[in-house]
Amino acid sequence: MLKTILKRILQSIPTLFIVITITFVLTRMIPGNPALTMLGPQAPKESVEQLEQELGLDKSKGEQYIMYLKQILSGDFGRSYSYNQSVVELIMERVPNTLVITLTSLFIALILGMIVGIVSAVRQYSILDYIFMVLALIGVSMPIFWMGLMLVLLFSVNLGWLPAMGMGDPANGMWDVLSHMILPCFCLATIPMATFARITRSSMLEVVNSDSVKALRARGLKEGVVIWKHALKNALPPIVTVLGLQLATAFTGAILTESIFSWPGMGTMIVSAIDNRDYALIQGVVLFTAIVFVAINLIVDVVYTIINPKVNYESGNGGR
């Protein structure tokens, strides 16, 4: 087991190297001069040249790339010019803000989505199944920015129950924090909830109709035990895969939702970094995201082997 993990970590090094290179090339390919972008329309030529020098943009792309690689290898992610702060500090500041809403919404989505999926699978082709699946379809297809604004219009402007924007302050009590979270979390939960519901349903359907479950029923086990204990466990792997992917995106923030609700998370920071052509910050955030994805994929694979011992990566014939 330990050997596998070590091997996987080593394998991820080339992946990260490729990510670093691609990000470097892509950021340089976006048209727009960072110095000019940051200094705004009224910038005199001298200021632009001065800032270019300060940011090392007057050097050739090759030199810049080598400089950047050296920096990364020495563990330095650089400093964001537009935020006037180190990239690591910025990410560490933003990730908790983002996780508060993304994990909460993911938790809600997982629980509700699975329940809906199981019920739909067990009562396949029932009215309930149809209603749930139509709702799931609506959930997947609803544009978040539109739904966010509609929710604000209803709950904040018309009813006055919830705040329209911002993050609560723990100093003002628990309710302040929670009330600011409700709308963004609800918005964020819809799409994954629908995804979980559909995945759970199809995975469960496959299992429920399998011979092993028929055998369990034949042995006279109660239907509840069959479904919730045996069938669900066998239906889990696809759900865990999706959960892993969703979890990884949770770290990178929810660009639309954060922008709408003025939530100071990773999403708003990425948008601002790209708008400002803040190369150091864009590169730092992408690299961070890559690391998170690699790490979570690894964890998911480990969890796989635990919930389904048949999956054996060491013997080389993973899967079934």
Binding site: I30, P31, G32, N33, P34, T37, D275
Partner: peptide, 9 residues
């Protein structure tokens, strides 16, 4: 285009 591209062109 967005601002960064516009300002350079």
């Amino acid at each position: 285009v967005e601002w960064g591209t516009f300002s350079e062109t």
